[in-house]
Every structure is written in structure tokens, then in C-alpha cells.
């Protein structure tokens, strides 16, 4: 989202900025509650943000 920093999103999700960065770069898979909270924040479904990568 334009104008939204990792720190802003982290504060809204009650996690650290490092965690948001790790999720963005694919180094950390969030829990289901956090994934749902992030999806709700952006007004989309979980599947639209997170993809199961079985490769």
C-alpha cells in the first residue's frame, strides 16, 4: 500500500518491523491469525496475499 511503511504495518499488527520485513521477503511464514489480520487490514483474502509454495 502506497505510503505505508513496514513500521506502520508492524505497529498496526502488534509485531516488530523485522517480522513484517521477513514476511515480505519470504523468510518467515506468519501464523494463521497474523495472516488473517494482515489480509483484513488490506481488505483482501489471505489467498490474495500469501501463496503456498510447494516447489
Amino acid at each position: 500500500m502506497k505510503g505505508l511503511s513496514q513500521a506502520d504495518l508492524a505497529q498496526r499488527m502488534d509485531v516488530s518491523r523485522q517480522t513484517i520485513n521477513s514476511i515480505e521477503t519470504g523468510r518467515y511464514t506468519p501464523s494463521l491469525p497474523l495472516a488473517i489480520a494482515i489480509a483484513r487490514f488490506f481488505g483482501v483474502t489471505v489467498e490474495e496475499i500469501f501463496h503456498a509454495d510447494h516447489s
Binding site: D14, V15, S16, Q18, T19, Y28, P30, S31, L34
Partner: peptide
């Protein structure tokens, strides 16, 4: 440190 903060308050699920 966000890491130390997370270790102390356990609010961050990744930490």
C-alpha cells in the same frame, strides 16, 4: 533492539 524487546514482552510471534 526490536529483538530484545520481542524476547522480553513475547508480543512478536516471530521472535
Amino acid at each position: 533492539s526490536e529483538t530484545v524487546r520481542g524476547l522480553l514482552d513475547h508480543r512478536d510471534e516471530r521472535i
